[in-house]
Design a protein around this nucleic acid. Structure first.
Length: 205
DNA sequence: CAGGCGCCCTCACCTAGATG
DNA sequence: CATCTAGGTGAGGGCGCCTG
């Protein structure tokens, strides 16, 4: 097999693995993660993968890609993704993934056990290591603020159990990604007492 | 010579502002 | 109100250049 062909297939497989990991990703995210060069070139590369990936136009205007049947078979992924008009949550999370350097151990929808004490567990949007520290990511995509407050209370209860501090000697940093300055302020207030970083989506994409 | 890439182009779609 | 218009943005076709 020609070297150029081999490289092409390797790049395709890398992109398919990313989509298996992230479920959905838009053109510019795949472009940044896989060095697809210019916008035009990125579109051409992704267009050349139509056998394995499907796309739709998101409300932000960009194409969003996901694995189709043969793409799933190619990377042994069982999760079926379809056109999803409400994929903003995924796209925000992806930009956090890229911002934090695409950590190898990044895990979405991670189940965090909170042994006893009322809270059985928390499903965190992402759990990852960054600069030798564990991080929880929460994405606030037009979510009801009451839900966010409830989430924060659960983190506080989790911290109060001391389980993490015992294992790690510290409680992981909570990272939020939200949409407006007003929401950032409110979240920061509620997170008082936690190690927290709050990004606006526009600041990290 | 095939594949990767950039540039130029057109088309579709959306939005803001003007106009009836 | 509805509708028209101009400008902005992304998708994708075409072409030509470069490189292994």
């Amino acid at each position: 097999m020609l070297e150029s062909q081999r490289r092409k297939i390797a790049r395709h497989d890398a992109i398919l693995s990313t989509l298996a990991k992230l479920d959905y990703a838009n053109r510019s995210q795949l472009q940044r993660l896989h060095d697809l060069r210019s916008d035009r070139n990125a579109r051409k590369v992704l267009d050349g993968m139509r056998e394995f990936i499907s796309s739709f136009r998101s409300d932000s205007g960009e194409n969003v890609y996901h694995l189709n049947k043969s793409g799933r078979e190619r990377v042994n992924s069982a999760i079926v993704r379809n056109k999803l008009s409400t994929c903003g949550h995924y796209l925000m999370r992806n930009d956090a993934y890229i911002y934090y350097g695409a950590p190898a151990d990044w895990k979405n929808e991670a189940r965090i056990k909170a042994d006893g004490e009322g809270t059985s567990h928390i499903i965190v949007d992402s759990y990852f290591m960054y600069e030798m520290r564990r991080h929880f990511l929460e994405v606030d995509h037009k979510q009801h603020m009451s839900k966010n407050k409830e989430k924060i209370e659960r983190y506080k209860r989790l911290k109060a159990t001391g389980v993490f501090q015992e294992k790690l000697r510290y409680f992981p940093r909570l990272v939020w990604i939200t949409l407006t300055e007003a929401r950032r302020k409110q979240l920061a207030e509620w997170c008082d007492g936690l190690d927290v970083t709050i990004h606006l989506w526009d600041e990290i994409r």
